[in-house]
Computed example of a mutant assay.
Amino acid sequence: MGIEIERKFLVDKEKWGQVTKEKQSLYRQGYIVSDPEKTIRVRLTDKEAFLTIKGLSVGISRAEFEYPIPVDDAQQLLDGFCDSVVSKIRYFITHDNKLWEVDEFLGDNEGLMVAEIELESEEETFSLPDWVGKEVTSEKRYSNSNLARRPYKSWG
């Protein structure tokens, strides 16, 4: 069993605009199952696709199983089995030897940017880039599965 240990932060868009973007990819992901105890997600990127199963979050950790699947299968699953879909541009930025993934959401979530860092342990320390803002790890409304059902533009 894999374990995902992740923290999330809002992005200071003004400072982010000054960052040199190393690599980026268009993501489209949909949810076959999305409830507090488990999530089954299909993700399609520019070049590959995955089926991901995640368990209940305990602190900043949760069980995670991820499997590559054929791109055509992912497209069919997104179109036929997912009631809610999120689209975003994901940027990959290295800061102090740690990979940061920054999501610029599209569509009904346009205007929202969230940075994520995956850790080896819940106690691991790391430095924050200056473009990182408020931590939102424990705020469920910022989860991708929630954004698929309750988009950012509907928050008022």
Results as ranks from 00 to 15, higher is better:
residue 74 A to Y: 00
residue 59 G to A: 02
residue 36 P to I: 01
residue 45 T to N: 01
residue 45 T to F: 02
residue 51 L to F: 13
residue 45 T to A: 09
residue 77 L to S: 06
residue 42 V to N: 03
residue 43 R to T: 05
residue 53 I to L: 13
residue 43 R to G: 09
residue 59 G to E: 02
residue 63 A to C: 02
residue 66 E to S: 11
residue 43 R to Q: 10
residue 71 V to C: 07
residue 78 L to K: 02
residue 78 L to E: 05
residue 77 L to C: 08
residue 56 L to K: 13
residue 65 F to G: 01
residue 69 I to T: 05
residue 65 F to R: 03
residue 57 S to Q: 11
residue 74 A to Q: 01
residue 41 R to M: 13
residue 49 A to F: 00
residue 77 L to G: 05
residue 38 K to N: 11
residue 52 T to E: 11
residue 42 V to G: 04
residue 59 G to N: 01
residue 53 I to H: 02
residue 53 I to R: 04
residue 51 L to A: 09
residue 49 A to R: 01
residue 73 D to Q: 08
residue 45 T to E: 03
residue 38 K to Y: 01
residue 64 E to T: 02
residue 37 E to L: 15
residue 73 D to S: 13
residue 72 D to V: 09
residue 67 Y to T: 03
residue 56 L to F: 14
residue 69 I to P: 04
residue 66 E to M: 13
residue 54 K to D: 05
residue 68 P to S: 10
residue 35 D to G: 10
residue 71 V to R: 15
residue 56 L to I: 03
residue 40 I to P: 07
residue 50 F to I: 06
residue 64 E to K: 04
residue 64 E to M: 04
residue 54 K to S: 10
residue 38 K to C: 14
residue 73 D to C: 09
residue 67 Y to E: 03
residue 54 K to F: 06
residue 45 T to D: 06
residue 49 A to Y: 00
residue 35 D to R: 14
residue 36 P to W: 13
residue 40 I to C: 14
residue 47 K to N: 12
residue 53 I to M: 12
residue 39 T to W: 03
residue 78 L to A: 08
residue 73 D to N: 05
residue 66 E to N: 07
residue 61 S to T: 04
residue 52 T to D: 10
residue 41 R to H: 07
residue 75 Q to L: 10
residue 58 V to G: 04
residue 57 S to T: 07
residue 65 F to Q: 07
residue 52 T to S: 13
residue 59 G to T: 02
residue 39 T to D: 12
residue 73 D to E: 15
residue 53 I to E: 12
residue 58 V to A: 11
residue 63 A to F: 14
residue 61 S to Q: 14
residue 60 I to L: 05
residue 60 I to R: 02
residue 72 D to T: 07
residue 59 G to H: 00
residue 78 L to I: 06
residue 35 D to H: 15
residue 78 L to Q: 08
residue 44 L to E: 09
residue 74 A to D: 00
residue 56 L to P: 00
residue 51 L to R: 00
residue 56 L to Q: 11
residue 67 Y to K: 03
residue 46 D to H: 01
residue 54 K to L: 06
residue 76 Q to K: 15
residue 72 D to E: 15
residue 63 A to V: 05
residue 76 Q to L: 15
residue 74 A to R: 00
residue 67 Y to H: 06
residue 38 K to I: 13
residue 56 L to A: 13
residue 61 S to I: 04
residue 72 D to P: 02
residue 51 L to H: 08
residue 77 L to E: 04
